[in-house]
Every structure is written in structure tokens, then in C-alpha cells.
Design a protein around this nucleic acid. Structure first.
Lengths: 183, 183
DNA sequence: CCAAAAAGCTAATCGAATTAGCCAAAGCCG
DNA sequence: CGGCTTTGGCTAATTCGATTAGCTTTTTGG
């Protein structure tokens, strides 16, 4: 019988599909193995552990997110850029809630993740350079932007917003808050 | 030999201690049983499952948080009240990062949790009544406040903020954003 | 064509959750 | 007090997921 032809990336692909369809809690090695058509221990030829797989998934998500956000910022500046970045961020979460939720199971302190997070942070910082903020003020502003966006994303992805009012409007208000606080 | 004298509340107490000292990931039935001086299956006389224990922990945390926030709001109004509420919320997270992190492992959709979350939301809404917002606008404002505060809390509790700039200053900026966006 | 590396597999271990069924301690009532 | 019932704890046993060990076969390079 021929081989399954897996690879580390292939395993991550399967894991991503899994969290997309069944949610972040469904990310287990046996489920990944099953969906890849392979016995569980075989996965260890490609990833060291479940913890590492989680990290790889987080890495992938962080990269996808950074791409979207960077692209949104391109060619824009000032308030307009901030708006575009924040909308792009949320659109990713709306499109892939499971992936976003999967990130939260990973300790953010691992070096490889820190690097990817920096890429994302870089895109945000670039957008904030349009405002005349000195070094520390830039950091504070970036943290606030991140908090707002991440907080909304987490709550939305986990179904934390109950009421029927449209979330788009709430988010536009949040964007307004960030922008008005940046002046 | 005398009994251990456990109770549902006692089990939750032990669980809270555990997440306080060892982090949210350490919340397992065997660890709780161990720290309560009891065999694991004995816990089932007090809680139905690990999932239920998690819910009870979340419930406890939500209540503590709502208390702090409500108390902070008491006797204040307007911007002053918003500031106090936001600071009180963060102070809880700073005091008990493990407890806050433990909440995120629980699906927020369970009815008993929704009730407690409503209490917390109520405290927030009360503070926002000082601004003249109609019904939907009030909801949107509450969601934004919640997103900002929760986003910052999650990032801080999980060590997501790397740089050395003091977090207090970042948080004060966030408070300013929310307040300026509320006008 | 052959040897070494790579990718699968099965068998086995470990730890955590959960269930079943037994037994003693506490509380209650006469 | 004596007994009954409820309650809380225990041990044994099952299940499932992660992980390790060791074997086998495919691929690949020379």
C-alpha cells in the first residue's frame, strides 16, 4: 500500500480543517490522525507532540492574520488605515472563528510564536506611525488597539455576545473609540 | 477515620486555590482531589463532572468580579464611574490572573453562566446610563467597554504583553479611549 | 542494486475522567 | 439508646487520548 504522504504542513492543514469544522476543543491527535487517514502514532513522525501541533496551528493563524491586516493597511494612512486594519482583523475572525479560538489554548510565551506575533504587531505599529506618538506612547497605543480588537474577537468567536443588535454597529463604535482616543 | 467534610463549595474552593497557584491548565479532578485529601471519584458526590466544576469556578469568578465592579461604581457617575469600573475590573485580574484565565475554558453559553454574566453586564450598563444613549446605543457601548476591558485582561493574564512599558499607563490610555468614544 | 533515512504500523504504558458497586459515618426518629 | 436512611468516601474497572518503543516497508541517493 502506498504512503499517506503526510508532512508537517499537511498535519497542520488537517488540524486547521478540524478546528474550522468542529471547534478548537476538537483538536486532538487522534482526530487529526483519523482525518488524515493515518494511525495516531504516525503523527509523531511530523510533530513532536500535541503541544507543538497547537503551536504550529497558532503560527499559521498568526501568519494568515498578519497577511490580511498588512494588506488592509497597504496604501492607507491615519484614521483610514486604523479603520481598515481593525475591520480586516475582525473579518478574519468572522471567517474563521474556530481558528481564532484555537490560538487561545497556546501559551503565548514560546519564542516561535513571539516572532509571529511581532509580525502582526509590526503591521499595527506601522499604521500608528501616522499619528505623532513618541516611543512609549506608540507602545501604549498599540496595546490598546490590540486589546480592543482582541477582546471583541474573543467575545464574538466564543459566542459571548448574546443580544440581537448587529455586531457590525458595535464594532464600528469600537473603531471610533480607538480613533478618537488616538488624538 | 473521620470524613473529609467536603461540599460542592469546598470543591470549588480547592479548585480556585489550584488555579491561583498553578494556573488554569492545572485544573484537573485528580489535582483537586489530591489537594482536598480525597480520592478522585469522591468528587463526583459533589460535582457531576469536570465540565460542571469548571462552570462553578467560572460562576464564582463572575460573581466576585461583579461584586468588585459594582462596588467601584457605587456613588460615582459619568466618566468618573467608567474609570472606576474599568480600574476595578483590571485590579481583579491583576490580583487573580489564574482565576480569570480559568474562565476562558468554559463555554459561555450555559444558562447559569449567562445569568452571572448578566449581573456583571448590569453593573456596566448602570454606569453607562449617565450618558444619554438610547437602547441600542447603550448595548453597543456596553459591548465596546466589555471588549476593551476583557481584551486587555486576557492579554495581561496570559502574559501577552511583552515590553517593559508599564501596563498601568497603557490601561489609562484605554480608559481614555473608551470615555472619549462615549461622548 | 544496496544501504540508510523516512514514514507507517502495532503493542504497550501512563494519566485523567468517569462509572459501578461496596461500606462506614452522620443524622434522625422512635 | 438502637436502628434506618442518607451521605460521603473508597476500590476496582473502563475508556480515551498522549506518548514511547521497536518493527517493517517504502523511498531515495549513490
Amino acid at each position: 500500500m502506498p504512503r499517506a504522504g503526510l508532512s508537517p504542513d499537511g498535519v497542520v492543514d488537517a488540524a486547521i480543517n478540524l478546528v474550522d469544522t468542529d471547534g478548537a476543543a476538537a483538536l486532538t491527535l487522534s482526530a487529526v490522525a483519523g482525518s488524515a487517514g493515518v494511525a495516531t502514532p504516525s503523527l509523531y513522525k511530523h510533530v513532536r507532540s500535541l503541544a507543538e501541533l497547537r503551536q504550529l496551528v497558532t503560527l499559521r493563524v498568526l501568519d494568515e492574520l498578519a497577511d490580511r491586516v498588512s494588506e488592509a493597511a497597504m496604501g492607507r494612512s491615519g484614521d483610514d488605515a486604523v479603520r481598515a486594519v481593525m475591520r480586516a482583523y475582525r473579518s478574519y475572525v468572522v471567517d474563521h472563528p474556530g481558528r481564532y479560538a484555537a490560538m487561545e489554548q497556546t501559551p503565548a510565551t514560546e519564542p516561535p510564536l513571539a516572532a509571529a506575533a511581532d509580525r502582526l504587531l509590526g503591521a499595527v505599529l506601522a499604521v500608528l506611525r501616522g499619528y505623532d506618538l513618541d516611543g512609549p506612547a506608540l507602545i501604549h497605543a498599540a496595546r490598546c488597539l490590540r486589546s480592543a480588537v482582541h477582546g471583541f474577537a474573543v467575545l464574538e468567536a466564543s459566542g459571548g455576545f448574546g443580544l440581537p443588535e448587529p455586531l457590525e454597529e458595535s464594532y464600528e463604535l469600537l473603531i471610533g473609540m480607538v480613533i478618537s482616543g488616538l488624538r
